[in-house]
Design a binder for these strands. Sequence first.
DNA 1: GTCTATAGGCAGATAGAC
DNA 2: GTCTATCTGCCTATAGAC
Lengths: 186, 186
Amino acid sequence: MDTKSQIIYIATNLFQQKGYKGVGVNEILNACNITKGALYHHFTNGKEELLIACLQSMDQAITTDIEVIFKQYQTTGEALYAMIEKLVKNFEREGTVSGYTFSSIVSEMASLSEPVRNTRSDLYAKIQGIYIKKLVEDGFSPENAASIALMITAFIEGGIMLCLTDKTSEPLKVILHVLPNLLKEF
Amino acid sequence: MDTKSQIIYIATNLFQQKGYKGVGVNEILNACNITKGALYHHFTNGKEELLIACLQSMDQAITTDIEVIFKQYQTTGEALYAMIEKLVKNFEREGTVSGYTFSSIVSEMASLSEPVRNTRSDLYAKIQGIYIKKLVEDGFSPENAASIALMITAFIEGGIMLCLTDKTSEPLKVILHVLPNLLKEF
DNA sequence: GTCTATAGGCAGATAGAC
DNA sequence: GTCTATCTGCCTATAGAC
């Protein structure tokens, strides 16, 4: 793996654990066993450019993962069940699911720059696009599908946040059983 | 209002907007029009002691507010509808509902100290206690009530997070219509 | 109880050798 | 492409006058 990819990989983990402001450039350098020269060679605009690269890398991993699951199952409800079940198992195995949310990194949005905000918005739109497509295939109207996709995102985001901060998989487990049934309400 | 209360009031707003790490002590001093001497007189242990005071102040405001609403309505579903409706109106009026969530302040939990983590946990437990009490009055079993309270919290947390970062009230509006009906699933 | 002045450290970023 | 050395500025916190 080349240096740039390695920096992104390691920095992504650190950002997920501590948030953008919570990780210093020096900490990243230590973890990567490189020096400032190397980092600023690959990321001319410094820490913020690195953050955007990390967000895009996360997006790649998340959307690929979700797309695979959503192709495997007939309905949105079944796909969501499988997806959340995977999150629960992941949390119980590794104690984290932070790879599935951007909030833990950039929830202090107000103090972040416009490029970062825009990147984050694009990524959420992409993920919700997958939900919407499947929901329309299920027979929902496009407007309803958009609302439901928003709801799904809110539910999962909140669940992940609670699991991470309370250090228990309970919130996601509850959502696992409720969310698929919830689709019938519409 | 005395100086200490004023510091807490202003610092709370800043922390809500930018997160703990995103606000510097100097920024707080400027906003309050005081100097270091005054701040460190009232908060011997500095910024972290101030944060804990802010979290407790928020907790006071939130639980009081929720309790008032929950006394006004017969069922948990009705109370939740009124509560979320208030959040939506608040967001549309002031562009924020950050007073109702701790996540935006302390989502970088891994890098925060034990006292702060514990304070946050206590506050969430208190809020969920209100939900649980009402749910049991509604006839739910204590175990079910606990699960449902967890779900409600996850849903609202996620909704607030999306509203704040996407700058639209849509997520909470969707939740407003779904959540009360959702209770019938149990 | 509030002020000024300052300590001491670490942040992100840059220049230039190799 | 990676290194070392260094800059500037901000950070939290403290000491001591008033």
